[in-house]
Computed example of a mutant assay.
Amino acid sequence: MEAALVWRVWRRLLREPAMREAVLGGRLDERAAALGLGPAEIEVARAYAEHPAGTEMFVHSYRFRMVSSFFNAVETVAPLTHRALLANDVDLRAIAVELLDRREWVDAGPFVYTFGGQILDHLAADGALGEIAGLRELIALERAAADVVITAAAGHPTARDKEPAAGQWRVRAPFGVHSCERDLSEWLRDSGTLGRSVPPAASRHYLIFLPAPEAERRIVAVPRRASDILRILGGGSGELPLLTAELARRGHPAAPGRDRAILDRFEALGLLAAPVGGS
């Protein structure tokens, strides 16, 4: 049998209850036309029908494993969103089956963060979930965090193992900056409030970074000035010999003392390396 054809029939068995009932219930011949099965597909389906117990076991075990992989991805990539959903009694298993049906039950394999990002995109598009105050903003924040990890996994270089050149601040860890229209700080500080309280409607900015390849990503609330600096960092080479001038060019009044305090804070977090000999 042609492998691609077998694969397509198998996918239909995984995702279509009517197909499973016909094949495993001994009704293949009478239901084949209604299911749109051609002669070659009927041959494949009949081979599955000859072993209904084994086929059913593999269908259920595969679906169980894929739903488990959905939960693993959510808990790994978006632990805050996961807790907020549970706090609101959202039926995550139903959402898992809906998404996997759309994906035709394709296994993401080891790409947990890529799958987790796709799950977050699916959750963000769910209109009913948008009624939970702050959830859409939280989903977007953890989606941005997933992107930071995915970028780091792609091997984008940082200056973690390099000494900064004279007069240059250097980026030492993969990072991103995300802004939203609700202040999620309380949710980040206290998991007991996740999804239970209503985050204030106020603009807030967050630094997302990966302190080390083996570390969990961190999310830190930062002031607007710091987010401006982060965006300049993200758009350049990671070298900041003219940081104050760059900020001034973008319409921000120079504030060397405040900028230096922000840079020192980033250095303490492990995001930046200070210039050799200070600046």
Results as ranks from 00 to 15, higher is better:
residue 119 I to P: 01
residue 122 H to A: 12
residue 122 H to S: 10
residue 126 D to C: 10
residue 128 A to D: 14
residue 132 I to K: 09
residue 133 A to M: 05
residue 135 L to A: 06
residue 135 L to N: 07
residue 139 I to A: 08
residue 142 E to F: 11
residue 145 A to N: 02
residue 145 A to D: 06
residue 148 V to I: 12
residue 150 I to K: 09
residue 151 T to Y: 03
residue 151 T to E: 00
residue 154 A to K: 15
residue 154 A to E: 13
residue 154 A to H: 13
residue 154 A to Y: 12
residue 154 A to W: 09
residue 158 T to G: 00
residue 161 D to H: 12
residue 163 E to V: 14
residue 163 E to L: 14
residue 170 R to Y: 09
residue 171 V to N: 03
residue 173 A to R: 01
residue 173 A to L: 05
residue 174 P to M: 06
residue 177 V to S: 06
residue 179 S to V: 05
residue 181 E to F: 12
residue 182 R to S: 03
residue 182 R to H: 04
residue 186 E to F: 06
residue 187 W to Y: 06
residue 188 L to A: 02
residue 189 R to A: 15
residue 190 D to S: 11
residue 190 D to Y: 04
residue 190 D to L: 01
residue 191 S to F: 13
residue 192 G to W: 03
residue 193 T to H: 08
residue 194 L to K: 05
residue 198 V to C: 00
residue 202 A to I: 07
residue 205 H to F: 07
residue 208 I to S: 06
residue 209 F to K: 05
residue 211 P to I: 14
residue 213 P to E: 13
residue 215 A to F: 07
residue 216 E to A: 14
residue 216 E to S: 13
residue 218 R to A: 07
residue 219 I to Y: 07
residue 219 I to T: 15
residue 222 V to M: 02
residue 223 P to I: 04
residue 223 P to N: 13
residue 223 P to E: 14
residue 224 R to Q: 08
residue 226 A to L: 10
residue 226 A to N: 12
residue 227 S to Q: 03
residue 230 L to E: 04
residue 231 R to I: 01
residue 232 I to F: 03
residue 238 G to N: 07
residue 241 P to T: 02
residue 242 L to V: 14
residue 244 T to S: 12
residue 246 E to D: 15
residue 247 L to R: 00
residue 249 R to M: 10
residue 249 R to P: 00
residue 250 R to N: 08
residue 252 H to L: 15
residue 260 R to N: 04
residue 260 R to Y: 02
residue 261 A to G: 03
residue 262 I to K: 08
residue 264 D to F: 09
